[in-house]
Each structure stands twice: as structure tokens, then as C-alpha cells.
């Protein structure tokens, strides 16, 4: 069997696979890229060819325009691509629409790069599929035992409770434009909220993308133009508005009725983080695995070796040491803590 390092190894550009001559989620333009999901720090424009799920390729086209790469190589979940003696398969990662784990097999050696993932049910994408392998390369965004995310349904209930308690205030929910925003909308619908949800313009094309892949978001409305308003109702008291976090603390938010700032993110577990972000209602809804999910996933897959890509690598490596597992932090650089848009 070849050494794992000969099949996948870290480089400053990203994880490199020599037999395929391809990089996973490269942070600079390369000839051949394998992209795990459509968040901007993993999926960049300008590669010659991109292999990804059809959903991810569609997301990249929405974000960067149709010319984001010369060649698109779609690979549906579970459908393998073989080059010489190396076989590559994308598996569901449960992170956002189209997100995938990368399984690489070569002469009996199996390696899996999880990409960003979570294990909680998400109504907008298929669940993470655990598959046995020799080397598991795991993300570690929330790899600290302080991160034990509450159930997303509980957090959505808190939003609806606040809405009932402050019917005079617009509830402005910050959520990353790709993935989190649509998940929050779906969670609201599942909780029985049928009112039209107001969405920021930056979300529109991505919402359409989800609808195209049969994720129904219910009635959505555009934010009214600030110049043509001035009736009481046009300031949207008691309504839910979803916007990318970058829009929250700008003049754009002035049009709403005494806006109450909420933010849906795994970081909201930590009070000081919420406070620093000026958030009044912290919703700990995460698209990444928390500590329990990360450690249980490693135990479940039970690889010979654990490699850790980006995030709180020290803590996951320590956990592995306590468990008597072989682990290696790769300290990859260039991926955001969570995806700013």
C-alpha cells in the first residue's frame, strides 16, 4: 500500500492529490480543483477545471457567473470518477446544499476529506454519510468542548418568542447568504411560521438556486426600497427580515422599526462573541459539527489515522491523544472561521 502522504498531502494552496494532480478547495487558481462546497473561501473562481457536485457547480455559477472555470466536471453523490488506479467519490457532508466529502481510493488505501460538515438534520441538504476509511481528514471549526450547540428548533422557537414579545420591532436576522439563510427559512416554516419572510437582495439569486433544487422556502418578499416608504407598516414592525451579516450594522438597517439584531451562527454560543458583534438575540444555529458531533464522528468512522485541517486543531488532536488515536494537525491556512460573504 502507498503511504497516505503520497495520496493526499497539505500544501500552502490546499490539500494536493499527486495521482490526480488536483487540489481540494485550493485557495489560489490551479489547473484542477476539487471543490467540496460553494462557500467563497473553499470555492474560488479562476481554476481551469472544477470537479464538484452539480449543486456546488450551480452555486459557483450563481456567485461568480457562468465563466467561473473553463471546464466543469459534475459528480453526483456516490458516483465515482476513476483516473488510472485512483478513484474519487463525493459523499454527502450535510453542511449546505451540494456540500460533499471527498473519498479518494488508491490501491486499497482509502482517505476521506470531510470538508465542512455537520451531523444535525438539515432540511436543505442530504445528511452526512459516514464511510469507513484509513485516514479521516476532518475539519475542526468548532473543535472545543465549549461548543455544544443547542437544537436548532429550540433556537428558532426563541426567535418566534421574541417576535411575539416585541411585536413593534423588526427582527433582523443575520445569516450567511448561502446555506444558513435558507436553513433558517426552512426551520421557520417547519416551526409553523407561514408569514412572508422579508429577504435582503443579496439572498435572492441563492434562494432561487435552492428552489431550483426543490428546497421550498415559502412566501418571500423583497425589502421595500428605503426611498419610497414612510408609512408605519413599511418599516416592517413584527416581521422577520433575513440579511447577510455584513448588511446588519449599516445605514441599510435604518429603514426598519427599532430593529432587533439577531444572528444565526455557531459562534453565538459564546456570549462575548455575541456582545462583540452587537447582537441582541444570539441564535446558536451552526452548519458545522460541534464538539460532540466531531468526536462522535471520528469514533464512529474509527480511522487508523486522523488528520485535522482547519479550525481548533490543537483541541481535537488532544482529544485524539486522550483516546489513544493517531492524529496530526495540518494547520491549513486560508479558510474563514465561518463563511463571511
Amino acid at each position: 500500500m502507498i503511504r497516505p502522504e503520497d495520496l493526499l498531502h497539505p500544501t500552502p494552496v490546499g490539500l494536493y492529490c499527486p495521482p490526480l494532480d488536483a487540489y481540494i478547495d485550493p485557495v489560489r487558481s490551479v489547473d484542477r480543483a476539487i471543490v467540496t462546497h460553494g462557500h467563497s473561501d473553499h470555492a474560488r473562481a479562476g481554476h481551469s477545471s472544477v470537479l464538484a457536485t452539480p449543486e456546488t457547480l450551480a452555486a459557483m455559477a450563481v456567485r461568480y457567473g457562468e465563466g467561473f472555470a473553463r471546464v466543469r466536471q459534475p459528480a453526483a453523490y456516490g458516483q465515482s470518477v476513476t483516473l488510472g488506479e485512483t478513484r474519487l467519490t463525493l459523499l454527502p457532508a450535510g453542511h449546505v446544499l451540494g456540500s460533499a466529502q471527498v473519498l479518494v481510493e488508491h490501491k486499497g488505501l482509502r482517505m476521506i476529506c470531510t470538508g465542512d460538515y455537520k451531523r444535525r438534520p438539515d432540511p436543505t441538504c442530504p445528511p452526512f454519510e459516514p464511510v469507513a476509511c484509513h485516514v479521516l481528514i476532518s475539519e475542526a471549526t468548532f473543535a472545543l468542548p465549549v461548543f455544544r450547540h443547542p437544537e436548532p428548533e429550540t433556537e428558532i422557537r426563541r426567535l418566534l418568542t421574541s417576535l411575539a414579545g416585541f411585536p413593534e420591532r423588526t427582527h433582523l436576522v443575520g445569516a450567511y447568504a448561502f446555506g444558513k439563510a435558507q436553513r433558517v427559512i426552512r426551520l421557520l416554516r417547519q416551526a409553523g411560521y407561514d408569514e412572508p419572510i422579508i429577504v435582503h437582495g443579496a439572498l435572492e439569486s441563492l434562494n432561487e438556486l435552492y428552489e431550483r433544487f426543490d428546497v421550498s422556502l415559502g412566501p418571500l418578499e423583497r425589502v421595500p426600497d428605503a426611498r419610497v416608504r414612510r408609512s408605519e407598516a413599511s418599516t416592517l414592525p413584527g416581521r422577520i427580515v433575513i440579511a447577510p451579516p455584513s448588511a446588519m450594522r449599516t445605514r441599510w438597517a435604518d429603514r426598519f422599526a427599532d430593529p432587533l439584531f439577531a444572528f444565526a451562527s455557531g459562534w453565538m454560543t459564546i456570549r462575548q462573541r455575541a456582545r462583540a458583534a452587537g447582537v441582541e438575540l444570539a441564535l446558536a444555529i451552526s452548519d458545522h459539527a460541534d464538539w460532540t458531533e466531531l468526536t462522535q464522528t471520528v469514533s464512529e468512522i474509527n480511522p487508523d489515522e486522523l488528520w485535522i485541517t482547519h479550525g481548533r486543531d490543537d483541541a481535537l488532536a488532544r482529544w485524539a491523544e486522550l483516546e489513544g488515536r493517531r492524529a496530526r494537525p495540518l494547520r491549513l491556512i486560508g479558510y474563514e472561521e465561518e463563511h463571511g460573504d
Binding site: L144, P145, V146, F147, R148, T269, I270, R271, Q272, R312, D314, A315, R318, W319, L322
Partner: peptide, 24 residues
Amino acid sequence: RIDPVLFSLSYDYVGDLAETVSLL
């Protein structure tokens, strides 16, 4: 209750003793 190394990594990250212990 908690491994000291994981504790200190957590404390270093959270930055507040009460908050760290309450979460851990």
C-alpha cells in the same frame, strides 16, 4: 471534570473563566 489541556485551550479561546466553565 475536564482534561486540563482541553480546559486551557477552551479558556484561551473563550477568554472568560466563568463563561468557559459554564460551557464546559
